[in-house]
């Protein structure tokens, strides 16, 4: 029996965004990464192209993380005090498509390190790995406004992805990203209207839409994941329906958020009924990522190599 054709006809799409620049393009990256391009509901390629395969950016912190549980520290224990070595391990051993440097220690309460130190860290990572780089500020507006311009300048021409522009703090970061040729993360607190608004604000400053990646504050599995899931699903549908200002690729912060969950970080002694924490933490991260992928995600920031490997396999199966 013939079954009715249920393919939707979409007029819009998610824009393609390229991160990283090779030597010929004015940078020093060995490869570049292109994300986005979907013309269908995620993975429904019977109705249109599904776009580029989602990529994984592994987080590297610029300071030794104090509060990580042992199961998470274990794979990195030899490199936690060197962001460059840490990044190298992520790329060479764990297959990260990109590295996301989180500038935690510039935060006034988390080390208050100087812009010069941040610049040195960025340079060391650019040296150590050849994949494109994401540089994430500390989300303290004044500090980011002081440090990010210097960091941006130091990585000029590398077409990094810098985070980020928010509704109440976007001018400086957008201006330096524009000047230094980087891509920009626009962020919103699980709110589709604010998400769109930030895109409008930065594009009013002349920032090109094809260099924007959207970020809705991620919620982990069990901790508000469904809110982000639905916001991202709505963003994707809006993009496909032709809303230009929501047609950007999406990034999720899965590693950090999942490992805050009790279910991920509790030790076996604290939670014997939940099974071994050696698997439980990576699984929590894996499932947060995998489920969110169904709502439309292009870049996933992750922590644990086991979770990275599992999600990579999954995205290959979906390609």
């Amino acid at each position: 029996m013939e079954v009715p054709n249920v393919a939707e006809k979409w007029m819009g799409c998610v824009r393609k965004v390229t991160i990283g620049a090779t030597k010929e393009q004015g940078g020093t990256r060995g490869n570049i990464v292109t994300v986005g391009g979907a013309k269908s509901i995620p993975y429904m390629d019977f109705e249109g192209e599904q776009g580029c395969k989602p990529v994984i950016a592994m987080d590297v912190l610029d300071t030794v993380p104090e509060d990580w549980p042992d199961a998470l520290k274990e794979p990195f224990k030899d490199v936690l005090n060197s962001p460059a070595k840490w990044a190298k391990k992520c790329v060479e051993q764990y297959g990260a498509d990109m590295v996301c440097l989180k500038l935690d220690s510039i935060h006034p309460d988390k080390g208050n390190k100087s812009a010069e130190e941040a610049v040195a860290t960025v340079k060391s990572i650019l040296q150590a790995v050849s994949v494109p780089l994401i540089i994430w500020g500390c989300e303290h507006n004044e500090t980011d406004n002081a440090v990010m311009p210097k960091v941006s300048q130091a990585a000029k021409g590398e077409r990094c992805l810098l985070a980020g522009a928010s509704q109440d703090n976007y001018k400086i970061i957008a201006a330096v990203c524009l000047a230094d040729g980087h891509c920009l993360v626009t962020q919103a607190p699980v709110d589709i209207n604010i998400g769109k608004q930030v895109n409008i604000l930065v594009s009013d400053l002349g920032f090109p839409l094809d260099r924007i990646i959207m970020f809705q504050t991620t919620g982990a599995l069990g901790y508000g994941m469904e809110y982000v899931y639905s916001i991202q699903e709505r963003e994707r549908i809006a993009a496909l329906s032709g809303d230009n200002l929501l047609g950007m690729p999406v990034i999720c912060n899965v590693g950090y958020e999942s490992w805050r969950a009790k279910e991920a970080k509790a030790s076996d002694a604290e939670a014997p009924q939940w099974g071994s924490c050696v698997e439980r933490g990576p699984m929590w991260e894996t499932i947060t990522a995998a489920t969110l992928l169904q709502s439309g995600v292009d870049i996933i920031r992750m922590y644990h190599p086991k979770a990275v490997a599992a999600v990579k396999k999954f995205t290959q199966d979906l390609a």
Partner: peptide, 11 residues
Amino acid sequence: EPWQIMPLLTV
């Protein structure tokens, strides 16, 4: 295993 079923039930 609990570490497999619990995340699924949470989804």
